[in-house]
Design a protein around this nucleic acid. Structure first.
Lengths: 240, 240
DNA sequence: TCCAAATATGGAATGACGTTCCATAATGAA
DNA sequence: TTCATTATGGAACGTCATTCCATATTTGGA
């Protein structure tokens, strides 16, 4: 007599955390951040939510794990032997491209502070900065700046992707809407914004992103140069 | 005969969008991002969800409006007459303090790209950069960098606040947990992270934040100086 | 002055979702 | 063989955002 519920027998191929994460990634890529539900996951894995919860603590755990899978894969590309600043640019660009391809990674990254995926980035950047002779007392600030900037861009990308979906249209129409809204702003209150509305459509996200990295790197370098400059070695201007 | 539902008469003091936003802010401040529900809102406003929806498109609309109320209030403080870089620092710090006091603003800001709250910040920074003689072709990159950095920090603050709540404990214990996790990382794989674990507890978020702003400002300034340097005025190195 | 829109209101119903429960199987250790 | 552990998957639960709908009040036009 079949009971209302329960497992008749163990599945031929047992469920794996790795397997779950793989399917989760596929789901996120195909249907976006909102497409990852335990229902959809259950269907694809031919199981129930209960079984999934055996391998995964909760949704946020799953998201972070999926995010980490992507991030570690991205940063896994062995960095060739290039100067530190070049290496940082490369790391940043790899991340940008990855997040561009998987916008949900940006959102996941933002919601997992101090977690593995973020630490991986933190570490990679930190190592490069160390090769740059950034004074020990300034390392933290330098890494944080680069990391927070990257996270900011990542989050914006994720948010854009989500909004584009809501607008039922792709990036293009979303941009048009924002553009239209900006054009309606009061010229006296928003002179700057109004004057750059057209750049909203023409600018290149990726190039702007590297430019930002360059600004920060140049700022870090400028401080370093000042410290070994004419007056000799100054004490760090900031504490820590 | 009382019907099962419906409004007996119009409320003495009619519902207002502004009123709803005010209560929403109180709710967000008191109970965090997850505390804003239409149920809680209905109770506080002595009404039903239906009535609220008459004044507000949806939850995201409400969040953005609440966020904008806070941001516009923050940026509303008339900036005294200070040099542009100082003004940017001031704007950034005001925002930092605001987001520190209302972490949910960070989250809301991240999810409303191109919307009013973000545009306000964009505009304020843009105006100051214009006073700085940043070449027209570099304005967009410069503003974006500062904005994205600020958004990144804002998002991290919001995420930290949320996680701290999940940990059922305040910032302190959350930090301890992350600290413990970092200490367990493999030294060979994570030499940098391991070497700065102690700074996790000792560093000052607010100071690090300004340091980041300073790095970026210095990077922007460095480029400017180079352009008017010995070789004379160079063409912009980047397009746009 | 009267009536049809338009403007509001608030409670009920809906549907989706995360998460927990539970009955049950297979597995491993003693 | 037996008992605890590891797994499994479906049902049940509670919470939300959102929509529906019955109804009230106001407004504008004739």
């Amino acid at each position: 007599m079949e009971k209302t519920s329960t497992a008749r027998q163990r599945r031929e191929q047992s469920l794996t955390r790795a397997q779950i994460i793989t399917v989760a990634i596929k789901l996120l890529d195909d249907t976006g951040e909102s497409g990852l539900t335990f229902q959809a996951l259950s269907k694809l894995l031919a199981t129930g939510p209960g079984a999934i919860y055996w391998h995964v603590a909760n949704k946020s755990d799953l998201m972070t794990a999926a995010c980490d899978a992507i991030v570690s894969r991205t940063l896994g590309t062995t960095s060739v032997d290039v100067p530190p600043e070049e290496a940082i640019r490369a790391i940043a660009l790899e991340l940008f491209d990855t997040i561009d391809a998987h916008p949900w990674v940006g959102g996941a990254l933002m919601h997992a502070p101090g977690q593995l995926p973020m630490v991986r980035i933190f570490e990679r950047i930190g190592q490069q900065l160390r090769s740059l002779d950034v004074p020990a007392g300034r390392e933290w600030a330098a890494v944080s700046t680069l990391l927070n900037y990257i996270l900011g861009v990542a989050g914006q990308n994720a948010a854009n992707a989500k909004l584009a979906k809501v607008h039922d249209l792709k990036r293009s129409s979303f941009l048009e809407d924002v553009s239209a809204a900006w054009s309606k702003l009061d010229v006296n209150e928003y002179p700057f914004t109004r004057s750059v509305v057209d750049q909203l459509a023409s600018h290149d996200d990726r190039k702007d992103f590297v430019d930002g990295i360059d600004f920060i790197l140049r700022g870090i370098a400028a401080e370093r140069e000042k410290m070994v400059g004419p007056e000799g070695l100054e004490p760090p201007t900031k504490r820590l």
